[in-house]
């Protein structure tokens, strides 16, 4: 296995708050890696540092062996890091096809087949039938899937998904898991996820964050057996599920 992305002592400070407090993280090529942790653990901040939406206060990020800490977000996308937003962030006034096409006509891909690649991405997620619909008129579940389609259309090496299953129905979640497995054949996937069933069924590696720190990293089995994780995180999830 080769390493795709690493961070070294990554820190993000907001005023006096260390949202990310020195994280050493490694992501292997080809894996599906889940990032879990309680609300406010710093997960979204952490992946925002990876994709460049936020600038790191300290520490460094390496992607395919090259340092990208200072690289602006749009260059990281071109280098192969795609990010899909936690809060659906599609172009709601444009058609579904235009949404995908904007993503597909990436500057370092050949110009002519952008439309074709947009179509392919929509077919993959099963939205081809809605191509000419206004994106804002789609059902919420479809909007989430369109968000993923835009990620796919970028043809990234690393796809970062921030809580992709939030608000989806059980059936949609099932379909979504299938989609992620399919994407994973070409793409490394890093996802933030609260739904433990999704995490356990998809992830080959799990990282647990709490209070800006990486608490543990391992296979699903290892994580489930980890006592520290149990007390910090898994316990609260169970309570939430009961409630």
């Amino acid at each position: 296995m080769t390493t795709l992305l690493t961070t070294r002592q990554l820190v993000k400070r907001f005023g006096g708050l260390n949202a990310v407090a020195g994280v050493d993280f490694t992501l292997e090529k080809g894996e599906i890696h889940a990032l879990i942790g309680p609300n406010g653990a710093g997960k979204t901040t952490f992946v925002s540092l990876l994709c460049g939406r936020l600038e790191a206060t300290e520490g460094s990020i390496f992607f395919k062996g090259k340092e990208i800490t200072e690289m602006p977000a749009w260059k990281r996308v071109r280098a192969g890091i795609a990010y899909t937003f936690q809060i659906t962030s599609i172009y709601s006034n444009l058609t579904v096809f235009q949404n995908a096409a904007i993503a597909a006509q990436h500057a370092n891909k050949p110009a002519d087949d952008a439309e074709q690649r947009a179509k392919t991405a929509l077919e993959k997620v099963g939205l081809a039938a809605y191509a000419s619909h206004e994106a804002g008129s789609l059902a919420y579940g479809h909007q989430r899937v369109l968000e993923v389609a835009m990620g796919i259309a970028l043809e990234p090496e690393l796809l970062i998904l921030d809580e992709p299953t939030q608000g989806l129905s059980d059936l949609e979640i099932e379909q979504f898991c299938g989609l992620i497995r399919e994407i994973n054949q070409q793409t490394t996937v890093l996802l933030i996820e609260h739904n433990m069933q999704v995490v356990m069924s998809l992830a080959r590696q799990i990282s647990v964050m709490d209070q800006g720190l990486l608490l543990a990293q391992g296979t699903p089995d290892e994580i489930q057996a980890n006592a520290a994780v149990q007390s910090a995180y898994l316990g609260t999830i169970d309570e939430e599920n009961v409630a």
Binding site: C51, R53, A73, W74, K75, V77, R78, Y83, F85, S89, I90, Y91, S92, N93, L94, I102, A103, H106, A107, M150, L154
Partner: peptide, 10 residues
Amino acid sequence: ENESRTRMLG
């Protein structure tokens, strides 16, 4: 329509 999203599309 959405500048920050566009930036995140490269």
